[in-house]
Design a protein around this nucleic acid. Structure first.
Lengths: 129, 129
DNA sequence: GTAAGTACGTACAAAAAGGTAAGTATGGAA
DNA sequence: TTCCATACTTACCTTTTTGTACGTACTTAC
């Protein structure tokens, strides 16, 4: 030990607030994963509870297996999704939200809800179809 | 007039709730514009009030003129953004949120806020840097 | 015996998104 | 007088994203 400072998370990092408006801020990457084509939908789907890979695939209309796998990995790497794999054949894997994931998912869900609820108004407000 | 039905917005359309989980639902397009790379940032920026094109460009780090223009058109077409152009040279154009736009922008802002506030936690929860 | 389901990874190709640079008309600053 | 700022648009090119199809290893249903 060189000095008496202990290794609790440095305040600077712990308290640093992200700045989405600046191009280099790492918060941009988080945003990218959440707002990726399938990211938001996966988060909302998982708010309903644990799902198997194929359940998610059927629930989210239009996803390919490849992109679902990719999206789940991003969200897992960001600490939003928990993956549990059972060593059986045929494969059995369960996905669920971490507590961090539940927090984002709730934000994301309220956006999704707004869109679903107000679709009619938006379509009528549109200039272009 | 063929019959006595008047042309108020049909209830079916007015009350129809979007379904983001189904691939063909038009709500998917709205979502796409809002969660496009710059869409969310533009909405949040405009919550601070009216901005000129170049002000937005400077505020949102990393946008190109092309993509900012594109994004603003999507949001305008969806009825979220209002564009006012003054016939002067050099050009002067002002962008602001419609009332519909303010509603979405508020949802979007709470997501953005969450990300900025919790960046530290997310970075520490990450498996991959 | 054959087909389907499971949870992916991978190679290849297509599509979409994004960036760069240039052009426009004009006023004001240096 | 030359340069910059304004709010875009367009052409062209690169990068990223997404999709398709196939392979896997084994079980269960038909």
């Amino acid at each position: 030990m060189e000095n008496l400072q202990h290794d609790r998370p440095r305040l600077a990092e712990a308290l640093r607030r992200g700045e989405l408006f600046s191009a280099e801020c790492p918060s941009r990457d988080i945003l990218k994963h959440i707002t990726s084509r399938w990211g938001l939908l996966v988060l909302v789907a998982l708010l309903d509870g644990t799902h198997r890979f194929s359940e998610l695939r059927r629930k989210i209309g239009g996803v390919s297996e490849k992109m679902l796998a990719q999206t789940l990995q991003w969200l897992e790497d960001d600490g939003f999704v928990d993956r549990v794999s059972y060593p059986v054949v045929p494969p059995h894997v369960e996905y669920s939200l971490t507590s961090l994931g539940q927090e984002v998912a709730r934000q994301v869900e309220s956006l999704a809800d707004w869109i679903e609820l107000n679709l009619g108004r938006v379509l009528r407000a549109r200039r272009v179809q």
